[in-house]
Write a protein that binds this DNA or RNA. Structure first.
Length: 264
DNA sequence: GCTTGGACCTGATTGC
DNA sequence: TGCAATCAGGTCCAAG
């Protein structure tokens, strides 16, 4: 999409998780997408008309690129078209289709020069792969926190962009119990945690993400990081380190997978 | 002010 | 086989 013009936008329903912003199609059509970036789990497309096209995949959202483009990204029609909710027709012939069965994703528009005041971004923590994120940062962010470290790492105001899978994996690699209160973890262990969080994210990106049921990359490829899970979705299986069974518990309504032998 | 849990919506899986 | 219950990668908001 980057460098291309949005020739036409087709919204096939009036809302996703939230209603589309007012006059969404008209505000996007005709604009050139000058830069496509990301903040946490939000995709941010900067448009030539000064607005930012903000897109979130929710849990089951997916963008697929159809049409001829440098010989790649040429695919047959999607298998579940009833969940194709938005179609962007780009200059150059590509069709970018947003599909989201569960409709937890959404799209929004916000002035590019005011993104720091976009509500979800205000107060958001640093990116886990940025220089700002470190053991020292975690010590400061966790100070006085009585929530379990699992819940604290999922809080986007602490660190931006970690989800349930990667928090479970990072805690396992760090040897830290998900039940440990965030404010009670020693500084040296937070240094380890910061390193492992970064490594998990970087490895997952290289592997093309995690496909549990329906995630696909833009070219239709599946992710491969699920083959590297050490605890996530492995309840009852042997821990890869100590062979004790991996446990599951529910924290703040989310499943946590962990090893009681390795994580203290 | 901080933390938890329900709600949002659909589909796949499990159990009766 | 068929139906109901449960669970799922995220985020927001009300209640505690």
């Amino acid at each position: 999409m980057e460098g291309k013009r949005v020739l036409r936008v087709e919204t096939r329903r009036k809302d996703l998780r939230f209603p589309f912003p007012k006059n969404f199609n008209q505000r996007v059509e005709g604009a050139k997408l000058t830069r496509l970036g990301r903040r946490a789990k939000y995709l941010v497309g900067e448009l030539s008309n000064g607005e930012a096209l903000i897109m979130h995949l929710g849990m089951t959202g997916r963008f697929t690129v159809f049409g001829k483009q440098k010989g790649n990204f040429h695919h047959a029609a999607g298998e579940d078209e009833k969940h194709d909710h938005v179609v962007f027709e780009m200059s150059g012939g590509a069709r970018v289709v947003f599909n989201d069965a569960r409709r937890f994703g959404f799209m929004d528009l916000w002035p590019v020069d005011d993104l720091e005041n976009y509500a979800p971004f205000a107060g958001m923590g640093p990116e886990p792969i940025s220089n700002e994120f470190s053991g020292a940062y975690l010590a400061e962010a966790f100070a006085g926190k009585k929530a379990p470290v699992k819940a604290a790492l999922l809080d986007q105001n602490v660190v931006a962009g970690l989800g349930n899978i990667y928090v479970c994996e990072a805690l396992f690699r760090s040897g830290i119990s998900p039940k440990k209160l965030a404010g009670s973890i020693r500084r040296d262990r937070l240094e380890t945690l910061a390193v492992e969080v970064r490594k998990v994210i970087e490895e997952a990106i290289v592997a093309g993400g995690s496909t549990i049921s329906d995630f696909k990359q833009a070219d239709g490829e599946l992710g491969y990081f699920q083959h590297s899970f050490q605890v996530y979705d492995r309840e009852g299986e042997d821990c890869v380190v100590c062979a004790k069974p991996v446990k599951r518990l529910v924290q703040s309504g989310r499943s946590t997978f962990w090893c009681a032998g390795c994580q203290r």
